[in-house]
Simulated scan of single mutants.
Amino acid sequence: MTSPPGGETRPRRPVAVPIAALLAATGLGVTAALGGLGETPEKPPKQLGPGSSLDQGEFTTTFVESRTAAEPGRFGIPGKRFLEVVLKVTNKGEETTELGSPPQGKTPGFFFAASLLKMTPEIKSDLGAVLSIPDGDVSSTQLHPGTTSTVVIRYELPRGSRPPKKVQFDVGAFELSEGFNLDPAWTLVADGDAADAPPEVAAQVTLPVRQGGTV
């Protein structure tokens, strides 16, 4: 092959790149930056405060307030101080259920209180959290279908300690799933598909602690 007259070389032609290919490459770059194909950003839990309500599947719960309360001493026995959290809980299921107990350490919770996954700061006491539905001199621990109940969660404060200015709860939700006898049963929504996945945090509820009050 001979060169053009004058010894000049022909200019190179620009290589045409399809627009679709450029868009695809750009999309892959964005996808990689977001963590790869088939992955979506985690949905953060709802942030709630006093008076807020949360649909927990089996229940609808309104987080009313947090407060301190004192029980006077008697017969030489020193008085006690408590942190109380007040809820209004509606049982949307078809059966009566118990208030139960929240998780404590590695011990899982039971019934409604199993959804109270964590409280910060943690208040350590021998009895842990005690849940009740006050009604005058009588209290109950049952949530009846279609009924809204005022629930008080009580934590005994260690002697000499100051109550926190606020508390925060990590709260889970329930879903109907297949039980042991293939009957539908309410269970906590898991955070993932693994058999040992922890419960998913549906909401974080922050409540300022109102100081004062007696029992």
Rank of each mutant, 00 (worst) to 15 (best):
P103K: 03
E39S: 15
A70M: 08
K106C: 06
A70D: 11
K106I: 09
T68S: 11
K92V: 00
L99P: 01
S53A: 14
Q104T: 09
A20P: 04
G105F: 00
E71P: 05
T60L: 10
T68G: 11
Q47V: 12
V89K: 00
Q47R: 15
A32E: 10
F63S: 03
T60A: 08
L48P: 00
F59L: 01
E39G: 08
I77D: 10
E95Q: 12
P103S: 11
F75E: 12
T26K: 03
T31F: 08
I19V: 15
F82E: 02
E84K: 11
G51E: 06
L99A: 07
E94M: 08
L48G: 00
Q104H: 13
V89W: 01
T60Y: 01
T31W: 05
E95L: 09
K88D: 09
L54S: 02
T96M: 09
T68F: 05
Q104M: 13
G73Q: 09
V89D: 00
R67M: 09
I77G: 05
A20N: 07
L87M: 10
E94N: 10
T68D: 09
G51K: 04
T96L: 09
L83I: 08
P50S: 14
F75S: 13
T96V: 11
P44S: 07
G73N: 07
T90W: 04
K43L: 12
G49V: 05
Q47N: 13
F63I: 03
T96E: 14
L23V: 15
I19W: 14
P45I: 04
V64Y: 01
G76I: 10
A32L: 14
E65M: 06
G27P: 04
G73H: 08
T60H: 04
Q56L: 02
V86P: 05
V30M: 10
T90I: 06
G36F: 09
E39M: 08
T31H: 04
A21K: 12
T31A: 14
Q56V: 01
F59C: 02
V64T: 08
L87P: 00
V64L: 07
N91Q: 07
A70V: 10
T62P: 07
G38A: 11
E71K: 13
T97A: 00
P50L: 02
G38L: 12
T68E: 09
K46T: 06
G57Y: 02
V89T: 04
A70K: 08
L34K: 12
G36L: 04
R67A: 08
G51A: 04
L99C: 02
E95I: 07
E42A: 15
V64E: 03
V86L: 10
G76Y: 07
Q47T: 14
G100E: 05
L37G: 11
T96N: 11
E71F: 09
T97P: 00
G29W: 05
A21E: 13
G35L: 09
S53Q: 14
V86K: 06
